[in-house]
């Protein structure tokens, strides 16, 4: 059940990201719902399949995106890694963990994108990227982090009701 829900949720968020949320721009930055859901899903205590579905959807998004093939995959796997590292350290305050993962995860993902694009010959600079894309994207992701975390928590509480009640 957990696999189905995670895959469906990621599919819905990917479609929403491509059709709607990519058009929400703050300077040149935009929110990343897929990243937020992966972060929120990975932070849930009972979830064990975060690596698997992040890998699958990282590959799918790599195919769809114009970014070099491995960049989105590395970015999303990095978010799961940050989530898992933080999960046990700030487990008592999951909302705080979500905000920290969103902040660090977005910075990590955008840094991967900048490095990959620079290596592939795009004329983009770190300073301009930080001003125009990274900071606005972090802000937008922080705004959307709370509702996405609520959705992920609700889904997990419905999948694992007995464990949550116990």
């Amino acid at each position: 059940m957990s696999h189905v829900v995670c895959a469906l949720a990621l599919l819905i968020f990917t479609v929403l990201q491509m059709t709607v949320f990519s058009r929400i721009n703050l300077i040149a930055g935009s929110p990343d719902l897929v990243l937020l859901f992966i972060a929120a899903w990975s932070l849930q205590e009972h979830v064990k399949n975060a690596w698997l579905w992040t890998g699958v959807f990282g590959l799918i998004i790599s195919v769809i995106s114009a970014m070099p093939f491995y960049a989105p995959l590395i970015g999303y796997l990095g978010v799961v890694l940050i989530s898992k590292l933080l999960q046990r350290r700030v487990w008592r305050v999951p909302i705080l963990a979500m905000f920290i993962v969103t902040l660090l995860g977005t910075f990590f993902q955008q840094a991967v994108y900048i490095i990959v694009l620079q290596v592939s010959g795009s004329p983009i600079s770190w300073l301009e990227s930080l001003d125009s894309v990274v900071v606005p994207s972090v802000l937008l992701n922080l705004i959307f982090a709370l509702p996405i975390f609520a959705v992920a928590s609700e889904l997990v509480s419905r999948i694992y009701p007995l464990e949550v009640e116990a």
């Binding site: 491509m18 990519s22 114009a66 960049a71 989105p72 900048i114 694009l117």
Partner: peptide, 14 residues
């Protein structure tokens, strides 16, 4: 037009 590029660094449409 059915979509836009996920990465904000790139300007593409689907």
């Amino acid at each position: 037009v059915i979509g836009r590029e996920i990465s904000p660094f790139l300007q593409y449409i689907m």
